[in-house]
Design a protein around this nucleic acid. Sequence first.
DNA 1: CTTGGCACTCGGGAACACAGAGTGCTAGAC
DNA 2: GTCTAGCACTCTGTGTTCCCGAGTGCCAAG
Lengths: 334, 334
Amino acid sequence: MLDDRKLAVLRAIVEDYVSTNEPVGSKALAERHNLNVSPATVRNDMAALEEQGYIAQPHTSAGRVPTDKGYRLFVDKLSQIKPLSSAERRAIETFLAGAVDLDDVVTRTVRLLAQLTRQVAVVQYPALSQSTVRHLELVPLTDRRVMFVLITNTGRVEQRVIELPETIEESRIAHLRAVLNACLDGCGLNQVPDQISDLPERLPVEDRPAAATILSVLLETLVERHDEKIVFAGAANLAGADFTTGLRDVLEALEEQVVLMRLLGETSDMPTTLTVRIGSENPYTGLRGTSLVATGYGSGARLGVLGPTRMDYPVTMGAVRAVARYVSQILAAS
Amino acid sequence: MLDDRKLAVLRAIVEDYVSTNEPVGSKALAERHNLNVSPATVRNDMAALEEQGYIAQPHTSAGRVPTDKGYRLFVDKLSQIKPLSSAERRAIETFLAGAVDLDDVVTRTVRLLAQLTRQVAVVQYPALSQSTVRHLELVPLTDRRVMFVLITNTGRVEQRVIELPETIEESRIAHLRAVLNACLDGCGLNQVPDQISDLPERLPVEDRPAAATILSVLLETLVERHDEKIVFAGAANLAGADFTTGLRDVLEALEEQVVLMRLLGETSDMPTTLTVRIGSENPYTGLRGTSLVATGYGSGARLGVLGPTRMDYPVTMGAVRAVARYVSQILAAS
DNA sequence: CTTGGCACTCGGGAACACAGAGTGCTAGAC
DNA sequence: GTCTAGCACTCTGTGTTCCCGAGTGCCAAG
């Protein structure tokens, strides 16, 4: 159905269109890539490719442009991920090495990725549910209020100020803290509810109201942050590109945590392989016209790059993969 | 030099131009605002206003458009801040009331402000230097590493993992923590360096290396975060507007913390009054073409709205002021 | 000082022609 | 059977011209 030459033609069309941003015609194609056939032959192949929906022409008598289906074939079969130059690798290393805490890692990563790909980078914070409790702290503020701080093994910190139902002495708080830590230390966050379910019963009666309040806050923290924060950078890189769908929609999508979440998250069966979602394959209408290249990193979180469907997939995929690996490495080390 | 009617004409020009986004001519002006004079008279006044640089015409034989100088006069003398409708007030209250921690307050604020003004909102995190130490926690992780957590009265939490020069027992850590807290509790962050300068001398010799490391991290935390984080929202609202300077520059500026910092910060002599910076008054070239309406909130931090110079100043100023007040109130209460 | 009248200017849209790129098709070459 | 060459055709984009209308500046009269 599609012989080798037709595939070569498709590949050439994608490459040319990506680099010039103009519909590519048979003549230029036959010249620039040494296919050793005449434009007429190329035209025949193009007709076949168009027939099957891999390319399209914007108007009669204009060159051809890849369709989403064409890009899909290109990504799946016709391209190889391009490794980064050693200069780029060094840049990544030095840039990420200076990070001081988790926040900083995420911020630096998203900027780095945006700069490297000249597109919009999207990074999800490592999810709480994948991590374990490293420490839980209760800090008395007044006799009716305590500050609750939860520290995870990924370096993430969650805090809340809790208003207690009754006054409580510091020593009791300290005791409560000790019990909680003994019970939860090293425990996976998704196991926390099981661990603490029978905890109140093991406490002196007078501590139970306070404990109940604190535990409910703890549980709340876990579920609330279950859908995690996503940050992006490089929106300025959108300014040049033109989307079928309008810049506004894209910017709106980027500020909608929920949309981004679905975008990144919906393909987490194989966490460390690259996912590419092209144009209309995207779940959100505003993002037709954009493609996402994403992958998992660390333990369960995801990061990626959003750009026009007309993007340089091999290079982008190389950058995303490389950055994801470096970040994973850094997170594992700390 | 500028009699009352000329000022009225300027005001009318600004108002019309803001609402229609088209150069406003003498005829339409005389009709729509009941100035009770003929177009010819208005023309004379316009000529005078143009002479003095308050308005300009894009081309010969087009209507007039306010200049930055014109907007300046309008903001300073000709307009009154427009209070919010009670529906809007309620919206603010309910939207901000649900915030659970400082992060959440800031996130909600910036979104609220963007939505309310349909422009880009910019919010600076409350600065550390303005706050006081509420608690300082040291959590032993292994025998060579401790996690350092600093909690301030504004609810902000800073944490670092510290690698110690030598192993240290938990009890010593606990002691160190007690000493540190006794020394620093309630102390303003900018006084911390003085407070801890002679601390090592008061400790047993064997604790000093560890203490030195920890103290240096503490100091580092203070200076590093002295320039604080700024977040923005509502970039999608830029999509419609057109700037003389190009959308790309504006987006770039928004992602440059340093630029934003200067933008918001440079007028902090009168923290709780509204600052308006119009077009070319902005420090950064990419932001000619945009105006900033900002004010202080809480204790020393700032928030504001960035939009085209052609913005509805009275309404925007009303929204910024109202939001700043509500947020301050919430921060003070917690 | 204000007003009505008038000539002038200029931007933007409509109509039009034209060059160039690219196509599809068909007939011949290998 | 596959490739190639040639040719007629179809578009889009661009440049040109023309004209309308909004808006101005100026002047003379109220």
